[in-house]
Amino acid sequence: MIGILSYLVFFATLASILAIAVLGLNLQWGNTGLFNGGVAAFFGAGAYVTLILGGQPQDEHLGGFALPYLVALAGGIAAAALLAWIVGRLTLKLRHDYLAIATFGVAVAFENVMRNALWLTGGAQGLRGFERPMRDLLGDGLNYNSVFLAFVLVLLLLVYGVLQRLAGSPFGRLLRAIREDEDAARSLGKMPARIRLTAFVTGSAIMGLAGGLYGTFYAFVSPQDVLPTLTFQIWAMLIVGGAGNNRGAIAGAFLIWGAWTASGWALSRFAPVEAQLYTGSIQFILIGLVIVGMLLWRPQGLFPERLVVSQSGKPGH
């Protein structure tokens, strides 16, 4: 019984961390219409920098500044924001599909640098030397995980609250206005380029927060954590949950991550050994079908965007 509880705490922690990242993407895509194909890079920047700033000194790679945890986490968020600012300055003026490819490329390059810059990140072996904060006080077991889950949940609610208020605020209206009709927004004297950059940087900083928490939770990060699969998983969560709806984003994270792990559990339990060689491929096909199916039959997601303000003059509506 206690075991199941312990597992659920663990599961909920990771799902909540991913949900935070999905919220960040929702601000970019759901609210502003920015196609960020490089989620893994901003997530990874948060994770790597948090661990480098907060970790113990290591011989093999940079870092181990042993800063207080919250400072390290803030540093991780700042790093993700900085990366987003640079990338945004360079790419946000691009057309949507170019933006998708350019940011996808950013993530590839990011993974590449993490893998090769041994002096900076430990290379393919990953970054070690991080101590989970308050471990002396709470130990390692369920206690620790419960407290950490509470911490993550507080942050999740905080991010959710801020984004909800934002969506209802004049700034939120502005974001949607830019998403729906940039020229109209410009004609009203708004500056779409700057506002888009703000949304992009904020969303990426939220992903950085998620990454920082992820690194903390595992006390380790390696290039394998920032492969394009992660970007894809986060996107799937948003599409299934419902782009534009923060509650949907959170629900999507729990649903997709739940389905991903539960299918692995079920396959290990019930599938014959021979079929298990193929479970990876089958799982990916299923995920692909869910995505395509959602776009075909319920493009608004399980929890559609609830429009707080008047709808734009989209043709056909």
């Binding site: 599909d97 096909i285 692909g288 995505i291 776009l295």
Partner: peptide, 16 residues
């Protein structure tokens, strides 16, 4: 833009 994401899904299915 839904198309871009749909194409991700299709790529995943075809490849696997």
């Amino acid at each position: 833009l839904s198309m871009v994401f749909a194409s991700f899904g299709v790529a995943l299915i075809v490849r696997n």
